[in-house]
Amino acid sequence: MPAGSNLEAVLSAGRFAVTAELGPPKGTNLSVVERKAEILRHCCDAVNLTDNQTAIVRMSSLACAIHLRRLGLDPVMQMTCRDRNRLALQSDVLGAAGAGVRNFLCLSGDHQQFGNHPGAKNVFDLDSIQLIQVLAGMRDTRRFQGGDEFTGDIPMFIGAAANPFADPLPYRVVRLAKKVRAGANFVQTQAVFDLEIFGRWMAQVRARGLHEQVAIMAGIVPLKSVGTARYMRDYVSGIVVPDAIIARMEDAADPKAEGMAIAVELIDAAREIPGVRGVHIMAVGWEEVVPILAERAGLLPRPLI
């Protein structure tokens, strides 16, 4: 059953898709969301709303996704298993679906230790793969995980994350296969900096035929400074930043320009890899860069389907 989201339409039409991340505000001001939405409106097919990313409390992805829908954008509502159990997750899905949200991204969630409430109790009633199963079950059988029926349509385009760069590397494709079997329709990867590891992973993905069952979008993080690059290499688990990229950022007279150049090169390279069907740009508070990258990578204008 088609979910009817713009992202789904672009991918189904065989076009190279672009999504971008929008970080909700640490406060009540929806105009922040509106400002960022206008920056992203014409340069991507759908916008991800992060769900208390890095375990820092922000405006909910549910509220922001509904707001974006009203502004006429196609939201991807991110949902983590860290903060909510199966009751809360399913209830949020009903609310979002009722308000026209069609794309849902199922995540484990960063551990609360990294955020601003390190003393919180986490939930993890479900894991991300089980969350995909629960959502697919709701969509396909119109029943909750607990078995009860509910009323109304619930068209969903279900997303998953994948990290080709985390240990154990040979297991990563197996995990993707499980997510596909659980019912994922699209996948957004962790930030790609190391094309060699990414290329090897994609080869394993193709060997299993997974690229034909799920739309894989390569994660792109534009680097703002050498400090950001080093921070990601040293402190963000599961991200690999090769020395060559660090060196380029170190030597750059204009680090922002160099970061953009690297991002465009990564987008170009990812596009050349068979089975990669889009990019997901995570600008982490630097949303203004997204239209520039999309323009330079030749991804504009976005298709109207």
């Binding site: 960063d110 986490n122 089980q130 985390a166 240990d167 154990p168 197996v174 995990r175 962790q190 599961g238």
Partner: peptide, 19 residues
């Protein structure tokens, strides 16, 4: 740390947990 039942999250580095 997340009691995950279906494999490691994306935060594994050098064999250890992100926390």
């Amino acid at each position: 740390a997340k009691s995950l039942l279906n494999g490691p999250c994306g935060g594994v580095q050098d064999g250890h947990c992100e926390i």
